[in-house]
Write a protein that binds this DNA or RNA. Structure first.
Length: 949
DNA sequence: TTGAAATGGTTTTTT
DNA sequence: ACCATTTCAA
């Protein structure tokens, strides 16, 4: 191992202490080892103290680890290094402000101070509600901005905008903008022009219209512009290109009012947070930056002789500049790997490392413009590359490079050559040549994945290394499943648990959608409103039958022990105490309950929320799926499931990159906020409010923003880097897994995709003896009403229109389920009201979403077909399947008929004495088509045919 | 090759 | 609501 003898690259980094260095330290090249050695070497030099050396890391954990390893290597002990500046940017800023920055707000013209009691607000959700409080007050105090607020769908999104501005070094002052901040807001027309021209080049040698013209085909499709907006034909012009003047017309726009709005919100929020005695992470850096810029004496006092920044690819623009302000000499060394820059959404700017030399000179010159602030101007930059990889085999390293140039869509043209030009290829130190690189695909990806893991464990063909360096067959603990999205990992964990496969997940959990949260919500409702919605689930939990519950709800008399418990709760002063008491009663003491307690208490402490506000906060948490970090303890020998982001820096003998599906890696689409900021177009408003247009007030889209957005091509570079990071985690083997539609990434990698047992039409390997239908969650009784046919009745259709047809979209579908389950959702909009009214009108029982199994004789063999029922309505006489479908057209019909038939035969078997109605409608070319179930024989034939394929 | 409509999704996480 | 990509038809 490299742990003891540095290789030549590492040696160079360790020894090159004087001067400016850019260190290209790829995955697994022993970076931490080298940095700690270098640091040790510097502080062991005569005349240099730890206080002279700034070592910046990305996380506190990393700082701790560095410190420990330095203690091992240098002449300094733990105690002597305790206060050494080995820390993150945030903690550096925090220390600076608390020690020297009490007057820092004044430097921006803000009449407030940082005090010893100013706390760092590190909880995103708490901050969001505080920001909401600020925005409410701000909009009341600024009626002149009413029109801008009217055009914002979610005013608290402005917080994201402010954070982005802060990360890019754009700050407000009492008078205007700090230093050259305003230039950023105005954007850079020349830069834009270049992108525009490139996007507007005709393709295929002039035969085909430009990408820009094609993209503008949908101009105006999803909204209305003010009457003075150019028409689509004016925008697109004739021929292969969009008119040249469009660049100018779209870019130039009077944005003074928007800028002053953002300025006032920004400054107002800074004042608000100082008044409330807190700073967020962004403001911490902002004020420290201003302090270092303006307080020349302080800056010169703290100036470090040596500055080292680790994980430089993860730094933001403001952090680069902060590092410069801390540098007293040109001994400035940054270490990182641009190929592993995957934190763009956290404002990491990969250009910091890719264009290091250029930015270094530019930023230093800008800072030195009116005063000597940075200890150098344009130093020679030496590049040191660490090329020996101690983790992976050559085959894996090669594969990772393929990932770096993989097209993200089937059409994307990747300039592989120019990307690879910047790649320093790594050399595998390992002599092993046994790597298995495989891919598999199945309609039931989770099932295939679990069975593949099951097979790999103990399989000698997947050798891994034990501690003594010998090869052995893999165990569960050698395998890591990496995913792009948390949700997939969580679902996989659930499936693994069900199948008894040991797996551990660490990451975000939607805490408000868990049982403890729902129970707490029910009790809060009882306390706050004495509502049926609160009592019903509590009574059900105790075990009362639906008719009994009904009787209690209508009479308003409840069991004495519950009423008594409600009184006990009422005596508790804080919501935290209430929650604790509820969880104690029900024996919830796991990590999820802890996370809820912590979340509830912190929001309550930090804001002026009442108990009722908090109740609504939890309701909103359910709706939006708010997640919190929850540690789900791992067994000793378990498969690890993580997101790729969470796994950065780690390594695993076997990596399975799962959920390699078109829709999740890379994800498509994504929301945009109403006010945006970005290079090179600056600050833009996407929607505008006009009180005069037509005859009533209305929100319009800003046509210029639409054109600008379509001009800027979507960039998938960071997604490719994510792929790179995932692959380079692997030591010995890499597998990919996909569901029905594999990602273009997977298609382009040099791996054959194996089809795993086509589990077509939900045919599972298991065989069940009887038709089963096992709803485990029951809905509630509603008032008696006419017995409905199905929810697809005409009168319900009337009110239901999601804009894409007359049937329910997925959102209405979700709402219906949540509503039927009594999850406390309130119907909003005509669709949801129609569904709610419909469900309210049902008598009998409502059963919600569960698996359904139908054993069927196919080719002389009994196979079980599974389906998922959405809502089933059961009365004494009849059973209706209530189903929602949004798909239309030819393809839909077969699929529907198949599913429908499963419901039909199962329900007939389960309810032999009742009439079963299962019919689904879909719309084809405006015609409503009714689908009837197949007979068992027909169904059997369909399944047989599907299996053959 | 283009226009038009259909389709199916809706991240990631540290300070 | 929004959006990128795919699919279909001309």
């Amino acid at each position: 191992m490299s742990e003891f003898t540095p290789n030549p690259g590492q040696r160079e980094l360790i020894d090159s202490t004087e001067g400016t260095y850019l260190v290209d330290a790829g995955a697994g090249t022993g970076k931490t080892f080298s940095i700690t050695r270098r640091y040790a070497g510097i502080v062991d030099t005569e005349g240099v103290e730890p206080d002279d050396v700034l070592l910046v890391t990305f996380t506190n954990n990393a700082a701790g680890e560095m410190r420990e390893r330095i203690v091992d290597r240098s002449g300094y002990g733990t105690r002597e290094l305790k206060d050494a500046p080995i820390q993150t940017f945030h903690s550096l800023c925090h220390d600076l402000l608390l020690e020297h920055g009490h007057d820092a707000p004044g430097l921006l013209g803000i009449d407030d101070y940082i005090t010893d009691s100013t706390r760092l607000l590190d909880d995103e959700f708490v901050e969001r509600s505080l920001f909401g409080e600020f925005i409410d007050g701000f909009s009341d105090d600024h009626p002149e901005y009413e029109d801008i607020f009217a055009a914002l769908s979610e005013p608290t999104d402005l917080l994201d905008l402010l954070n982005e501005l802060a990360a890019k070094g754009v700050f407000p002052t009492a008078e205007g903008w700090y230093r050259d901040g305003e230039r950023h807001l105005d954007g850079d027309f020349e830069g834009f022009r270049e992108i525009f021209d490139e996007r507007n080049e005709p393709r295929n040698g002039g035969n085909k219209q430009s990408a820009l013209r094609s993209a503008l085909y949908s101009y105006g499709n999803s909204g209305t512009y003010l009457p003075d907006a150019p028409s689509k034909s004016e925008i697109r012009g004739e021929g292969k290109q969009v008119p040249d003047v469009l660049a100018k017309h779209a870019f130039h726009e009077d944005r003074e009012r928007l800028k002053s709005f953002v300025h006032d919100v920004y400054l107002g929020y800074l004042r608000f947070s100082l008044r409330r005695n807190y700073l967020n992470f962004g403001f911490l850096q902002l004020l420290a930056y201003v302090l270092l810029c303006e307080d020349h004496a302080l800056r010169e006092r703290i100036a470090f002789e040596y500055v080292m920044v680790d994980e430089f690819q993860d730094t933001s623009e403001i952090q680069f500049k902060l590092a410069l302000l801390c540098a007293g000499t040109e001994n400035f060394c940054v270490v990182g790997d641009w190929k592993q820059s995957i934190y763009g959404f956290q404002y990491a700017d990969v250009e910091n490392i890719v264009a290091f030399e250029d930015r270094l000179g530019r930023f230093a010159a800008e800072l030195n413009r009116d005063h000597d602030r940075v200890g150098f101007e344009q130093p020679d930059v030496e590049t040191i590359s660490l090329v020996e990889n101690y983790r992976s085999t050559e085959a894996i390293l090669d594969l990772a490079e393929d990932g770096l140039v993989a097209p993200a869509t089937s059409k994307e043209a990747v300039d592989a050559e120019s990307i690879l030009e910047d790649v320093t290829s790594l050399d595998a130190v390992s002599d092993y040549d046994h790597s298995r690189i495989e891919a598999f695909q199945s309609e039931d990806e989770q099932e295939a994945l679990l069975s593949r893991i099951h097979d790999i464990v103990g399989d000698e063909r997947f050798p891994v290394e034990d501690e003594g360096g010998d090869l052995r067959a893999p165990e569960y603990g050698d395998i890591a499943v990496l995913t792009r999205r948390r949700a997939f990992g969580r679902e996989l964990l659930a499936a693994a648990t069900e199948n008894g496969l040991p797996m551990a997940y660490e990451g975000g959990v939607e805490i408000y959608r868990t049982d403890p949260a729902k129970l707490l919500l029910a009790w809060l409702r009882v306390l706050e409103y004495d509502a049926d919605r609160g009592w019903a689930p509590l009574l059900e939990r105790v075990g009362y039958s639906l008719p009994e519950i009904d009787a209690m709800l209508s009479s308003g008399t409840y069991p004495q022990n519950l009423v008594g418990f409600a009184d006990e709760l009422r005596d508790r002063e804080t919501v935290g105490a209430i929650a604790r008491h509820v969880f104690e009663r029900y024996g919830y003491d796991g990590p999820v309950a802890d996370a809820i307690l912590h979340a509830v208490q912190s929001v309550h402490d930090a804001t002026t929320m009442s108990r009722g506000d908090l109740l609504r906060y939890i309701e909103r948490g359910i709706e939006t799926g708010t997640t919190r970090e929850v540690h789900v303890g791992a067994g000793t020998d378990a498969v690890t499931v993580q997101t790729i982001h969470a796994t950065k820096g780690l390594e695993h003998p076997i990596v399975i990159l799962a959920d390699m599906n078109q829709h999740s890696f890379p994800p498509s689409g994504g929301g945009t906020s109403d006010i945006t900021f970005g290079d090179p177009v600056g600050l833009r408003q996407r929607t505008v409010f006009d009180a005069e247009a037509y005859d009533r007030p209305h929100v319009f889209r800003n046509w210029r923003s639409d054109v600008l957005k379509r001009t800027l091509p979507r960039n998938y570079d960071e997604e490719r880097r994510l792929l790179y990071v995932a692959i380079t985690r692997a030591e010995h083997h890499v597998l990919f897994s996909a569901g029905e539609t594999p990602s273009a990434f997977l298609e382009s990698l040099p791996v054959a995709v194996e089809q795993i047992d086509p589990d077509v039409a939900g045919v599972s390997a298991s065989t069940e003896a009887k038709p089963t239908f096992t709803p485990d969650v029951q809905g509630r009784d509603g008032p008696a009403a006419e017995t409905p046919h199905t929810i697809m009745r005409d009168d319900v259709f009337e009110g239901v229109d999601d804009g894409r047809g007359v049937e329910f979209g997925s959102r209405v579908h979700e709402f219906a389920e949540a509503y039927a389950l009594g999850e406390g959702v309130t119907p909003e909009g005509s669709d949801e009201r129609a569904v709610a009214a419909f469900l309210d009108g049902l008598d009998g029982e409502l059963l919600v979403e569960e698996d359904i199994h139908l054993p069927l004789d196919v080719d002389g063999e009994t196979v079980t077909i599974t389906g998922v029922v959405d809502l089933v309505h059961v009365t004494d006489e009849r059973v209706d399947v209530i189903d929602y479908k949004t798909d239309r057209g030819r393809h839909a019909e077969d699929e529907y008929r198949k599913q429908l038939s499963v419901y039909h035969h199962v329900l007939e078997a389960v309810y032999p004495d009742r009439e079963v109605t299962t019919s689904i409608f879909y719309t084809d070319g405006g015609e409503r088509v009714r689908v009837e179930p197949l007979s068992e024989t027909e169904l059997s034939n369909v399944v047989s045919a599907a299996r053959e394929r």
